[in-house]
């Protein structure tokens, strides 16, 4: 008895308790819902079988049905545009800001801290603010564009099929910008100053220093930022109900919001689960690429 007790205090037993606690938490709160979701995508689900676990097996019927939905390819295309445009915008502007604030001018860290406001705010609130800014009739963005003479006509950002997706992309870039900037700032700060000095003496100009020192030294940070950006963008939900509700005519609908519409507006839980699983596979693929790319990470 005392041997077991001792082992629990200091030994294998203690290790098992620590590992066990983490595993129980993961299984209960992440593993089970995930498995349930995958199981549901292979079942026939309707309002009457919603409460039971064992339902008729449907094979790949749900997957076929999702792909055959008339809006499937439109949503796929929108999702890709949304993900790439948002990530590109967040990353490039975030990196630019991180480099800007790395210049250590007076107040740099304070102002950088203020940028975090966008990250702290709930997505629904951000959506609400951008809804005002992007409004066709009274929106500030249109006023600015017209004032600068960039456009004559009033752009209905949220209801014009040509712009509706971009309205959400703009709001999402603003929302994710600070997070990208923060992580990239940390990465930049971790590069020793004397490397830049050595490169400068070796004859590298500012652009060459960025290309040969900053970027390679930031490789793992950039990998982390991009994969977190991918996950965050695929998960983005709040902006859609606040701005366009996926409309008009699904022109701003993306997979995540579509899955929610299937499950909780049309009560087609099987299709909702199926779309989620498809997204999950995509994220899993991206994660594997990320992990493999950072495996040979070089740090001094």
């Amino acid at each position: 008895m005392s041997r077991i007790f001792n082992s629990m205090r200091d030994g294998k037993g203690f290790d098992l308790i620590l590992v066990g606690a983490a595993m129980v938490f993961l299984l209960a709160l992440a593993g089970l819902p995930l498995v349930y979701n995958v199981v549901m995508s292979f079942q026939q689900v309707d309002m009457f079988t919603l409460g039971s676990l064992v339902r008729p097996f449907a094979g790949f019927a749900n997957y076929v049905a999702v792909v055959q939905q008339p809006e499937f390819w439109l949503v796929t295309k929108n999702t890709l545009i949304f993900v790439f445009a948002s990530m590109a915008g967040q990353f490039i502007i975030g990196f630019a800001l991180a480099l800007f604030f790395a210049q250590n001018f007076p107040g740099a860290s304070t102002i950088r801290g203020l940028f975090l406001v966008s990250w702290v705010m709930p997505g629904l609130v951000v959506g609400g603010i951008w809804s005002f800014i992007l409004a066709g009739d009274y929106g500030v963005l249109n006023a600015i564009l017209k004032g600068l003479g960039l456009t004559q006509a009033t752009i209905f950002w949220k209801s014009d099929p040509n712009f509706s997706l971009w309205a959400v992309v703009i709001a999402n870039i603003w929302l994710g910008l600070a997070f990208n900037m923060l992580l990239l700032s940390v990465g930049l700060a971790a590069i020793p100053r004397d490397l830049y000095e050595a490169a400068e003496l070796d004859g590298a100009n500012a652009f060459q220093r960025f290309w040969t020192i900053t970027l390679p030294m930031m490789r793992s940070t950039i990998g982390a930022v991009l994969s977190l950006g991918l996950i965050g963008t695929l998960q983005q939900f709040d902006l859609f109900p606040a701005l366009t509700e996926g409309g008009p005519a699904n022109t701003s609908n993306v997979a995540g919001y579509w899955a929610w519409q299937m499950s909780f507006q049309l009560y087609d839980f099987a299709k909702g689960a199926t779309i989620s699983v498809m997204m999950f596979v995509l994220v899993l693929f991206a994660s594997v690429v990320y992990v493999r790319s950072t495996r040979h990470e070089v740090r001094g």
């Binding site: 490397l195 000095e197 070796d202 490789r219």
Partner: peptide, 15 residues
């Protein structure tokens, strides 16, 4: 300036 410097930390490029 065409001068070379050896740093206390060596400042080798780790990558």
């Amino acid at each position: 300036r065409d001068v070379a410097m050896v740093f206390q930390s060596y400042a080798l490029y780790p990558h």
